[in-house]
Design a protein around this nucleic acid. Structure first.
Lengths: 213, 213
DNA sequence: ATGTAATATCTGATATGCCAGATTTCAACT
DNA sequence: AGTTGAAATCTGGCATATCAGATATTACAT
């Protein structure tokens, strides 16, 4: 159990992260009724931050908050997780499309550096992350970034444990995507990015099928 | 000013709607610092629901809440609005794609009825709304619906005042989209839905350019 | 004058108490 | 036994007070 009173950030944010993780990993099963006061006691904090954390999760579609009635875990089924990854793929495609036309010279140079770093990085997952983030940022769309962030948050954290394999396998994808952005080929960039992320989603699907008890 | 204590729904939800509308219509300009207590006084409610409403807006990217420092309006520029519509178009495309393959017989029948209703409806905007909503629901993706809802919320309400024109003009689009779904042609459905919504976004762009003083 | 550190202040974050709508219980009635 | 409705209860919503981090101010030293 995390210590909600000594780490940085707001208490609400930490409660939200912890609860989100529990839902995404299935430790909180769909249909479970949540007791606000119980969470309050467990976390050793007051009701307000817990309540606000759960409201945040409700905006993300992970729980339902029925006014003066109760809070229920909606959860995320394996199908939901795959669906969510498909949406993430779609959004990533749009980001790459825009990046191809809107990217600045400076951003492009930096993107090349970031891409090269993936190959030699200690932490491949983190490096891969930075590459995709750089592409997304290059889209220059504040709105798109909002939706991307939310879609990423709904990916079960445990998936990333097997991600290194996936990252290495998809190394060539990055090169072709970067090339498309270099050429300013928006259509190709979109299509490449979308199928690239979709592949990662398929890997998640395989993993979930293997792990369903 | 709305009466926050007599209408239905939670006080927080009404405060959020009012504040969101003010941001989207530009009555609250980007960069404006918000005073929690001032809003509290204006709305005649306490700080908790106002605070939670603003947190909600922060998740939508409309304001930034800096812990123990201040709340600032991020707002949505005309470019953001068009971008947002493009994202909405992308998501709608995905919804149509899935609908084409996943729709049930019953849903398909109902969709035809809903589509026909647009032509004869009193309130074309609402009827058009129901059609698109029906397509989105037919996608069968809970996750996608979450993102669609959020993208729709970021569309300036005032845009819908000129929407009847737009709806009538795009009537033929619905027919071809419905046909694609009938045939189970996912690729066509996606492409048609996306460009259809994109057209509406272009109309919004034109309108914004005309109205920028 | 300028940089710096102590302090006053400002602002949201959190804790707590009370309230009201929703739900359940249970008893009176048919 | 089935139905209805009133009361008890359960649950989150809202109000309010206090707290703590961030920021601005000011006084002091250089």
């Amino acid at each position: 159990m995390p210590d909600f009173n000594s780490i940085g950030g707001t208490v609400r944010a930490r409660a939200a992260n912890e609860l989100r993780d529990r839902v995404l990993t299935g430790r909180l099963q769909p249909g479970t009724r949540l007791d606000l006061d119980e969470i309050t006691r467990e976390f050793g904090i007051s009701r307000t931050p817990v309540r606000e954390a759960l409201l945040e999760l409700s905006y993300e579609g992970l729980v339902t908050v029925t006014p003066r009635s109760g809070i229920t875990v909606l959860g995320i089924t394996p199908e939901d997780a795959v669906d969510n990854f498909a949406v993430l793929a779609t959004l990533s495609g749009k980001a790459a499309e825009w990046a191809a036309t809107r990217i600045t010279k400076a951003e492009l140079d930096q993107l090349h550096v970031t891409a090269d770093a993936v190959a030699t990085a200690e932490d491949v997952v983190a490096a891969n992350w930075r590459f995709h983030r750089a592409v997304n940022l290059a889209s220059g769309s504040r709105r798109l970034l909002i939706y991307l962030r939310q879609a990423v948050r709904a990916v079960p954290a445990s998936y990333f444990e097997l991600f290194p394999e996936q990252v290495r396998r998809s190394h060539a994808d990055h090169a072709t995507l970067l090339d498309a952005i270099d050429r300013g080929d928006a259509t190709a960039a979109r299509s490449l990015a979308e199928s690239h992320v979709l592949d990662a989603g398929a890997a998640l699907g395989d993993w979930l099928r293997l792990h369903k008890s």
